[in-house]
């Protein structure tokens, strides 16, 4: 029941936000003090143009884990509407060109998965702990399993 309702909420969120994964967990301190490790961000994926100041989630070719940083520069083409975007972590000294693929100066629209619209502190620690200390995950699953077996209804 818990699992199914969680799934329903998840799917509903996916519908409403139109994003592939409507929540992400912050993994690094590069956006501190705004976002800390373990905070959860709610994403919104829309066709709206990207603008400076927005916090976007983007993928870089050759990197597995998406990055959540702020847009500091936008150049939008007159004819095609294509954009060149530069990002930076609020807590980082320099911009993100060092994080991009070698020789890449700008992000384009297809690199950007979504933008952050809301924020819930701490809750993401659950997933961080479970990924980094798998033993805790197994204990938790075991305990849940035991609960299911022992409960009568």
């Amino acid at each position: 029941m818990i699992v199914t309702s969680a799934l329903i909420i998840w799917k509903a969120l996916m519908c409403i936000t139109g994003s592939e994964s409507p929540v992400v967990v912050v993994l690094s301190g590069s956006m501190e003090p705004g976002f800390k490790r373990g905070d959860i961000l709610f994403l919104h994926m829309s066709k709206d143009p990207i603008r400076a100041g927005e916090i976007v989630v983007f993928n870089v070719d050759g990197r597995e884990i998406p990055i959540v940083h702020r847009v500091i520069k936008v150049h939008e083409r007159e004819d095609t509407g294509e954009v060149d975007v530069l990002t930076k972590g609020d807590n980082n000294y320099g911009d993100d060109r060092l994080l991009y693929a070698q020789g890449q100066l700008w992000l384009q629209r297809h690199h950007i998965m979504g933008r952050a619209v809301g924020f819930l502190p701490y809750v993401g620690w659950v997933t961080i702990i479970m990924t980094e200390k798998p033993i805790i995950k197994y204990i938790l699953i075991g305990a849940l399993g035991l609960l299911v077996i022992t409960s009568k209804d």
Binding site: A52, G53, I72, K73, H75, E76, R77, E78, G81, D90
Partner: peptide
């Protein structure tokens, strides 16, 4: 002429 919009961040603060 090339870009309908250019936004260049010059300064920021928290």
């Amino acid at each position: 002429p090339k870009n309908a919009l250019n936004q260049v961040s010059l300064w920021d603060a928290i």
